[in-house]
Design a protein around this nucleic acid. Sequence first.
DNA 1: GCGTCCTATGTAACCGTTTACATGCGCAGA
DNA 2: TCTGCGCATGTAAACGGTTACATAGGACGC
Lengths: 351, 351
Amino acid sequence: MATIRDVARVAGVSIATVSRVYNGSARVSDETRRKVRAVAAKMDYWPNGAARSLTTARTHSLGVLLPDLYGEFFSEVIRGIDHGARQAKYQILVSSSHADSDALVVASRSMHGRIDGLIAMAPDVASTAAIKQIARNFPVVLLNPRVEVEGCYAISIANFEGAHTMVRHLIAQGHERIAILKGPHGNVDAEERLRGYRSALRESGIHPLPELEFDGDFTEASGHRRAKEILALEGLPTAVFAVNDYMAIGLLSALRDAGVRVPEDIAVTGFDNIAISQYLSPPLTTVQVDAYELGQRAVQQWLLAIEPEGRSTPPRHEVLPATLVIRRSCGVARSAVPRGGRKSKRKPDGG
Amino acid sequence: MATIRDVARVAGVSIATVSRVYNGSARVSDETRRKVRAVAAKMDYWPNGAARSLTTARTHSLGVLLPDLYGEFFSEVIRGIDHGARQAKYQILVSSSHADSDALVVASRSMHGRIDGLIAMAPDVASTAAIKQIARNFPVVLLNPRVEVEGCYAISIANFEGAHTMVRHLIAQGHERIAILKGPHGNVDAEERLRGYRSALRESGIHPLPELEFDGDFTEASGHRRAKEILALEGLPTAVFAVNDYMAIGLLSALRDAGVRVPEDIAVTGFDNIAISQYLSPPLTTVQVDAYELGQRAVQQWLLAIEPEGRSTPPRHEVLPATLVIRRSCGVARSAVPRGGRKSKRKPDGG
DNA sequence: GCGTCCTATGTAACCGTTTACATGCGCAGA
DNA sequence: TCTGCGCATGTAAACGGTTACATAGGACGC
């Protein structure tokens, strides 16, 4: 591809002038501007991003480090980030599958010089030091951090409160024997939701029972598998709180196959309010969390952080609400409750 | 952050030596190597990516241009790309929401100097020229292109064949009055699937009827909405083929609410085989397409293209198969058919 | 007619690397 | 002792831009 020098030569001007044409600000006569544009178009010239970054120390891209990209949650987070970034004319440099803090550091290092900032989901507490180190180079926004990291912006979802609210709702419906389908060990969201569950039980004088806590891994398959064990309990629970919707879906499917009616025989609830949860049979009572917004707000925070004025204000930790969405699966008479809607930011998609 | 010069000064060597330490290949004495590493670690040095790209003309990142990121299809495509890229030590620079070819060109331009190649889903035929232009600078892999573009690698999904097979299956089951829930106008996948539907009907001597073709936009909501119109038809269709699973889900939900039994009163089938389709009630008969693999193979093709030997072989157009997954929603007795499985590459996820 | 100012444009240093080529040193062979 | 070679390391020129500063020429006031 042609370089700035080629264009300058052909257009009969200096490289500085060509550069000025592409950076708008400087004063160039209309005639020169037109000539340069014309030559550049003919030669298919466009400024080289790497060279630009080198001199300006701005890359116009934003690093995104996630543990995984699977499932609607991550997919929506990244969509939110992409849209937010796009609005601000930034591109995103994505790298996922970061299971531990070492991988995180390696990835962020390899992005040095390519990004103006970082949005990351830190896998564990061990990352704290590493992240603090990274944050010295450019603003870092943490998603759902397990602990506060000094000097970092953060934004998370009210997992504890959401689960707490959900379980209190079940208790208010008269349920006392409430099982939980847990998420993967070590996952922050999963752990917070479990805490919320236990806390709500205790507050109502119900002792959390280990035999009512079932391991899961956030997949439909794990929800499906655990159904058998739940049904094998002596003293069936009257409600099962799955800590995400996918597991609730697997559970619902297995219960249906086993001839167990939901919500008549057993109530089932989820967490996340994924798009299809309202179309399930029965429609799923769940907790609304807006992953898209999580991503978008992360970008907003970051944009704030790179503003000259923004640097002065101390990093904030924002928390997105998690609200109850009551549908049929938890056993409220259908007519008594309006069918829970879902904010729709979606567009028709391919595939 | 420290530069190569800082490290060289402190370590008492030249910048060339530091550079050599980081590029492995060149011969540096063990002692010097250790010293440089130690100093670099202390100073928190890492080579600047932009500067590296500038001299080497390699960026170690791969551009990804998609029209959207919404829904399981795109989410899986990008996951496949990410994993493929990660394996080859590449990062991906993502930009979505490219509705038209102009946006595509703008985005690809702004990536100039930042990427070593491009994976793109071209929105329309008008893009052909633009893409050919882009492909002169580095290898381009097109996803599901509407037309062949000379000089570009391409990979697509057998949409036509998948739809064709599905409708032939329905006809083999005795269905003759088969409705279709179409996708968005202008969407390649949607149009190919529609073609497959019509073609299969004609082959069996059934004339495609306009009144049996319903507009949709790939969302559950649109499937839900169209249910009313379908049920209002004089002469109910005995089967409805939704061109993606999301619309099938909306349709199933609406039919259930209307007291229409699936598959007894009406058969419903989808397309894509998204993760939850096997957990629906009834489990959804659909067409398996592997979006993850689409992404992964796109990266493979691109890696092939940048190999020195690879450049000599002419660009290929690969087609991924779309295979029938028969479950209960299309009306075959449950015991007669093994429950269709789904390849699982998934890992437990967050949220 | 000359100094002054303004504007459009050119010159050249610099950003942080890589790498071809130069250098200097130790050692082996004659 | 001299030549030649190999190896570790240094020097300096790119890479393709941006931008501070210099410059040239025209308009203007006196």
